[in-house]
């Protein structure tokens, strides 16, 4: 069987790369943690991967603003490579700091339809960093990472997670275009003030997707709920608890298997040469 390959991008101050790699491997992908310098040196490196992850942390100390310096690096060195990655039908996931990078680099909500000056992520209304668990309601049916209809419980841990648009009109466009991926809700699915919405995001936005549905950025940390014992009160819950964070990683891996690996197997000289050259087409047959 062909492997689903994920690249977890490291940089100075990125600090959730190891557990993100672990979550991807639990979901069945083979993940590599790679420093951004290696990708800048060799932009073809991305070609061998199906999923590109911008993980959480404090890239470059979140100096100036969260994710800004790394976004600046992406803009000036990797715009084309990331664009090609998305255009090739592959998946991009930004978690917490990674979401901030994607928004500040203009990758989310995406160039077609949105200008850089229309959406940003800024400091929490509370004025401080907070680590707490929140419920997320799935919104966009288009986003391939999301399990439709499933409300998930995951932690946020950030000081700058408030999604802001420059105008009500821009906000309405985000919603109308189906670019809102997740919203913060309470246990029963209702939106509300802090702490239900932990940072004061407009329209309780927790995550955004782009027009392809193959790019997801979200403030909460799905990689922190991939095993039962990570739940904040697992000692009160059933032993067969399915960890909500896994839904995002499982869906990503499944999407790649169903859409990219089969396509690659059908046409060996296809869009992901690095993988298909390593693995014989027949090995992928059981999936098709």
């Amino acid at each position: 069987m062909q492997e689903v390959r994920a690249i977890v991008l490291r940089a100075a101050g990125i600090n959730t790369d190891v557990e993100t790699e672990y979550a991807l491997e639990l979901a069945g992908a083979r993940a590599d943690r790679v420093h951004i310098n290696r990708v800048i040196e060799d932009k073809d490196l991305l070609a061998q991967y199906h999923i590109l992850i911008f993980p959480g942390g404090f890239s470059y100390g979140d100096d100036v603003a969260a994710g800004r310096i790394m976004a600046n690096q992406v803009i000036h060195h990797l715009t084309d490579a990331v664009r090609r990655f998305i255009d090739d039908g592959k998946l991009v996931l930004g978690i917490c700091n990674g979401f901030q990078v994607l928004v500040k680099a203009g990758i989310l909500p995406g160039g077609d339809g949105f200008r850089q000056e229309e959406v940003t992520i800024t400091g929490n209304d509370s004025g401080q960093y907070e680590d707490r668990w929140v419920y997320l309601a799935p919104q966009s049916p288009r986003c391939v990472f999301i399990e439709p209809g499933r409300r998930i419980y995951v932690p946020v841990a950030h000081g700058e997670g408030k999604v802001v648009t420059c105008s009500d009109e821009a906000l309405q466009r985000l919603q109308a275009d189906g670019l809102v991926a997740y919203t913060y809700v309470d246990r029963d699915g209702r939106q509300g003030p802090f702490p239900i919405n932990p940072n004061g995001s407009m329209a309780s936005i927790a995550g955004l997707t782009d027009r392809t549905g193959r790019v997801l950025g979200l403030m909460p940390h799905p990689e922190r709920f991939v095993r039962r014992t990570q739940h904040p009160h697992w000692t009160r819950l059933a032993a067969d608890l399915d960890p909500d964070g896994m839904t995002i990683f499982r869906n990503a891996v499944r999407y790649v298997r169903e859409n990219l690996l089969q396509a690659a197997a059908a046409q060996p000289i296809g869009e992901i040469p690095a993988v298909s050259s390593e693995t014989s087409p027949t090995a992928a047959a059981p999936l098709s």
């Binding site: 600090n15 959730t16 190891v18 557990e19 672990y22 979550a23 959480g56 401080q128 960093y129 907070e130 680590d131 707490r132 932690p155 841990a157 940390h221 990689e223 922190r224 991939v226 014992t229 990570q230």
Partner: peptide, 12 residues
């Protein structure tokens, strides 16, 4: 709550 007590994913 101001401290990240869950990073590294090992919190039990």
């Amino acid at each position: 709550r101001q401290y990240d007590h869950e990073v590294q994913g090992g919190s039990v």
